[in-house]
Design a protein around this nucleic acid. Structure first.
Length: 466
RNA sequence: GGUGAGGUGGCAGAGCGGCUAUGCGUUCGCCUGCAGAGCGAAUCUAUAGGGGUUCGAAUCCCUUCCUCACCUCCA
């Protein structure tokens, strides 16, 4: 088994993941105040696929992804809609699962919510105060950035530079403009009693508290979108390492932004495409292929033209898969053995070297092409199929791609209908033949006539095409 | 202004010192009752500009230009 190497934002180097034991991953999830967009999906798809890859290699993965369910934006939304914050957050959590289940994202082992970990946060804040890293002020409890000597190490920022950047809000109640809130006093709901007064937690503390709780003080991978490097992850490091005195995550893995017309997709710019919209038009397989078609660390530009390209790719994959499972006859398999081992090698090597999904995909498409070539030459056999199908299915599983399973019943029904149709075709009774084709198409099956046989496929319906 | 990541064929996108991926597209074929898909061939020998280093550079160094992200909430 090879060793996975991932680029670590903190050290700016590729780092190896230790082989032994469970791989613990914490991924920062979304703030649930609105629908998720395709940019969120990209990040989640990357980590979901990484997890699937590790699991496919027989490693145990412990995967935690939080929901930020207390936040100003949620509260504002609640006010607008005359609802409570928890109405809003639970509504969008349920939308989140609707979207991401459709995207074939495996659920995390735990999806902790900030509001269910208030005590963990309070204890952490208490400890930070005790250790002198935090102080109570008029509006809340703040982390004293100056006390954490390594502040800025993740985002490569110098405290002086941060201060000179005039975008920091001036707040006289803080000792230092860079200090950030751990606990914000509040009289309004949502609020919780705290040792320093009623209030609610700051944003960053939840991830420190929950990752420490579920994954311990020093886990393997902490991930999220690039835009979280500063201040969110920087602040998490400050809090967590001040608390434990130990290195926090071993690897910081950050996913590039989804852009649209070259600009970052974000709520505030108003240029988002919701996950639901994109799913309705393109379906999960196309989206996953699209999101994995570039290296995770780089930006990827949303474009319908590029999404459309992936339909063509997916059609080849479908063709390949159905050719395989419908293959008949016997024959030698030496050549195919070689292709398979090359595919596996390139696929795994790609993913092991900083999760190079484009390389892995190219290996996969080479295999698909090759199988389609063999099929077109009428040389596909059952024995080839027996070797290749499990490998293809393993790749589907790793990439989170879904292709319909065909039951034996379904198969024999279809085979029988095709037999009848071909009988009509031989007798040039094309109207009858077309009637059967229509009947077959109504159960979602596409027919493709070859010289001496008819291939059938249960093709995915792509919304944009209809 | 500071920090980071980049600029590769018509498009997307790997490679990161020699073997010049991969996919899409386009053109022409094969197949074919129709249909669709698939296959084959061709097209494209590309690496932002300018200097170096080297027997040899897209890959290393210098320099110029350009793009994006972060420095405020953000996946």
């Amino acid at each position: 088994m090879q060793i996975l190497r991932i680029f670590d934002t903190l050290t700016e180097k590729e780092k190896e993941i230790e082989v032994s034991g469970t791989i613990r991953m914490y991924v920062c999830g979304v703030t649930v105040y609105d629908e998720s967009h395709i940019g969120h999906a990209r990040t989640i798809i990357v980590f979901d696929t990484l997890r699937r890859f590790l699991e496919s290699q027989g490693r145990k993965v412990q995967f935690i992804q939080n929901f930020t369910d207390v936040d100003d934006k949620i509260i504002n939304r609640a006010k607008q809609e005359n609802a409570t914050a928890s109405d809003i957050s639970s509504k969008y959590i349920s939308h989140y699962f609707d979207d991401f289940d459709r995207l074939n994202i495996k659920r995390a082992d735990i999806h902790p919510k900030a509001t269910e970990h208030i005590n963990d946060m309070i204890n952490l804040i208490k400890d930070l105060i005790d250790k002198g890293y935090a102080y109570v002020s008029k509006n809340g409890v703040y982390f004293s950035v100056g006390k954490f000597k390594e502040y800025g190490k993740l985002s490569k920022k110098k405290i002086d530079d941060l201060l000179s950047g005039a975008r920091i809000e001036v707040d006289e109640t803080k000792n230092d403009p860079l200090d950030f809130a751990l606990w914000k006093f509040s009289d309004e709901e949502p609020k919780w009693p705290g040792p320093w007064g009623d209030g609610r937690p700051g944003w960053h503390i939840e991830c420190s508290a929950m990752s420490l709780k579920y994954l311990g003080e020093n886990f393997e991978i902490h991930g999220g979108g690039r835009d979280l490097i500063f201040p969110h992850h920087e602040n998490e490091i400050a809090q967590s390492e001040s608390h434990t005195g130990k290195q926090f995550a071993k690897i910081w893995m950050h996913v590039g932004m989804m852009t649209i017309n070259g600009e970052k997709m974000s709520k505030s710019l108003g240029n988002i495409k919701s996950v639901k919209y994109v799913l309705d038009h393109w379906g999960p397989n196309i989206i996953r292929l699209f999101c994995l078609s570039g290296h995770y660390s780089k930006p990827i530009d949303y474009s319908e033209e590029l999404l459309r390209e992936n339909i063509a790719k997916w059609r080849q994959v479908e063709n390949c898969y159905f050719e395989l499972i419908l293959a008949e006859g016997q024959g030698q398999t030496d050549e195919v053995q070689k292709i398979i081992s090359e595919t596996k090698k390139e696929f795994d090597e790609g993913l092991e070297s900083d999760f190079n999904t484009p390389m892995a995909l190219s290996a996969f498409f080479k295999l698909v092409k090759e199988i389609n070539r063999i099929a077109a030459a009428e040389m596909l056999t059952q024995s080839i199929s027996k070797i290749v199908v499990p490998e293809v299915e393993k790749i589907f599983e790793t990439l989170g791609l879904k292709i319909p399973k065909i039951s034996e019943d379904e198969k024999s029904t279809i085979t029988e209908l095709i037999r009848k149709r071909n009988m009509f075709r031989e007798q040039k009774q094309y109207q009858e033949a077309d009637k059967i084709r229509k009947q077959i198409s109504e159960i979602g099956i596409t027919l493709i006539d070859h010289k001496n046989r008819t291939l059938w496929m249960k093709q995915e319906k792509i919304g944009i095409e209809s």
